[in-house]
Design a protein around this nucleic acid. Structure first.
Length: 511
RNA sequence: GCCGCGUUGGUCAAGAGGUUAAGACGCCUCCCUUUCACGGAGGAAUCACGGGUUCGAGUCCCGUACGUGGUACCA
């Protein structure tokens, strides 16, 4: 089945109907990794055959997400390529030809049933044992189609442009089986599969026809998709057999689903449990419904890709942190799991934290700068910012945490956790800080050691334990009980700001 | 209902007939640190159930249960 001398070509084929969720990005990732690992091509194809669901901006959004993730396609409507068009709507005319060919060969037929006819059929055949009757061998001879109508009638209907679809004619008593790269042998009894519509009344193909025709025309060698497609695989297998031959068919890989806290992961889960579901922020232009993205939530693309890769795959060792390059090197489809995985936001955050920790300031700089500037922090000295990043990055889980972890290096805290010191505050401590300011003012040097030495000597002199004074000082400089060593902070913010912040707080405490 | 796929701690998972059933996240305890983190040391917690096969089963087979997907002129 695998054409060993042919170049690996894989595709991700989303429909431009809305945001790109976790599962979608992971499908992209596995496609990408497989292609790069095998020196092949990764193709992006836009499946825009459902004109009623088309959403403005959704296609551009997909490019943006792939770009952010660092998973850019080799061929796409945007990137070009030799196997275009890369948008299914632009291939409309040829689908009809393939569908007609199937009719001619007796593997498909015209159906003239109206929506109403179908509803009636479903109502009439509905029983307790069969709550959703299908358009299949049991009913097709009772419907209005080219199997039941005379050739003249069919001809006439066609000539008068009567709305119609083309349906596949499922054979009886046939075992349809194939080897999935993940599930191994999968088989279906053709009697349980219905006569799926291949070509819609508007002349557009359904997914079933389009995916087969396009994969053939684009010379796709391996087809990765979510497991929700597994049950329609028999239709695709048959189409390949009828149209192009099974020896031309790509190898299938049905990827396990990513689940939410209770079942299938939905954007609702994200809103409900407070975690992002889409790669990037997305606002539906129709409903104005907003769905949060991993990017804006504060995830690093490297962490996002890493955590997605590990949701359904691992290399068999204890290693969990992988760069994209390492993933390309280590990835193997054989080690992709069969079963769905529940998405765990806590673990996702851990991946991000690890990536922040192992990044150097330079790599984080532009993102952090942007985050701070968006919140009106003015950055004048980039090197200073870099040193701050080094100082606080171990405390950040999300990139957005850099704001609260570093604002106080740039401006005096807006709110002070006075309650943290007030209970143990007294005149002696107050005097200590006044004197401390005087001594700082007089000092010619300004570095961590000097500040700490002055502080400790004075504390000893006043007979107060330095430890009891450190928390108040922290509150004065930072505003809360967090951050790196206080003397380091004092050093960074400078003499003037340090003295100023101490004095300001002193006023408030002694009030 | 029918069809498909799946089932190792709360979550992600290693495991391919013989192991004290790895590891990670989360949780708890302690150490480091008179802040918060990082880091370090420990701890609690698992093979869905029932039958086989076998000297021996988390691993193989069959049932059951549960989960999940499909059952559209949506993808």
């Amino acid at each position: 089945m695998q054409k060993s001398n042919e170049k690996v070509r894989v595709r991700f084929a989303p429909s431009p109907t809305g945001g790109l969720h976790l599962g979608g990005v992971r499908t992209v990732l596995y496609n990408y990794l497989f292609a790069k690992k095998n020196g092949g091509k990764f193709i992006l194809r836009i499946e825009d055959t459902d004109q009623t669901r088309f959403v403005d901006g959704a296609e551009q959004y997909i490019y943006d997400c792939l770009k952010w993730c660092g998973l850019e396609p080799d061929e796409s409507p945007l990137h070009g390529g030799d196997y275009g068009p890369y948008r299914q709507s632009e291939r409309k005319a040829s689908y009809r030809e393939y569908a007609e060919q199937l009719v001619k060969n007796g593997n498909a037929y015209y159906a003239f049933d109206t929506t109403q006819d179908l509803e009636e059929m479903r109502a009439n055949f509905k029983t307790d044992l069969n709550p959703s009757p299908q358009y299949d061998a049991h009913v097709r001879m009772k419907m209005k189609n080219s199997l039941t109508l005379s050739p003249e009638e069919v001809d006439n209907l066609l000539k008068t442009n009567t709305p119609h679809v083309i349906r596949i004619k499922m054979p009886s008593n046939e075992m349809i089986s194939f080897t999935d790269m993940i599930h191994q042998e999968v088989s279906f009894d053709s009697n349980t599969v219905d006569d799926k519509v291949l070509l819609k009344a508007d002349g557009m193909p359904t997914y079933h026809l389009a995916v087969v025709v396009d994969d053939y025309l684009m010379k796709i060698t391996h087809a990765f998709r979510g497991e929700e497609w597994l049950s329609s695989a028999p239709v695709h297998i048959l189409l390949w057999k009828y149209l192009f031959g099974l020896d031309q068919m790509p190898q299938w890989a049905h990827l396990p689903l990513i689940l939410g806290p209770n079942g299938k992961l939905s954007k609702r889960d994200g809103a409900k449990f407070g975690f992002p579901v889409y790669a990037m922020n997305w606002t539906d232009p129709r409903s104005n419904e907003f769905t949060e993205g991993f990017k804006e939530k504060g995830f690093l693309p490297s962490a996002f890709v890493n955590l997605l890769a590990l949701l359904g795959w691992n290399d068999g060792t204890e290693k969990e942190l992988f760069s994209l390059d390492e993933l390309i090197h280590q990835f193997s489809i054989e080690r992709v799991h069969k079963s769905g995985a529940k998405f765990d936001y806590e673990k996702a955050k851990w991946f991000n934290q690890e990536w922040i920790k192992q990044s150097v300031a330079d790599e984080l700089l532009s993102d952090v700068k942007q985050i701070l500037e968006a919140k009106d922090v003015i950055i004048t000295d980039v090197d200073f910012l870099k040193s701050i990043i080094e100082l606080v990055k171990d405390r950040c889980v999300l990139m957005t945490d850099f704001y609260e972890q570093s604002v106080y290096f740039f401006k005096a805290p807006q709110t002070l956790d006075i309650e943290a010191v007030k209970p143990k505050w007294n005149k002696a401590k107050s005097d200590f800080f006044s004197e401390f300011c005087t001594q700082l003012e007089a000092s010619n040097d300004w570095d961590t050691i000097t500040i700490e030495t002055i502080f400790k000597n004075l504390a000893t002199e006043k007979n107060i334990k330095p430890g009891e004074l450190q928390l108040p000082m922290r509150i004065m400089l930072v505003g809360g009980k967090f951050g790196p060593a206080v003397f380091e902070i004092a050093n960074k913010i400078g003499k003037a700001a340090t003295i100023n912040r101490i004095n300001t707080t002193l006023v408030e405490l002694n009030h």
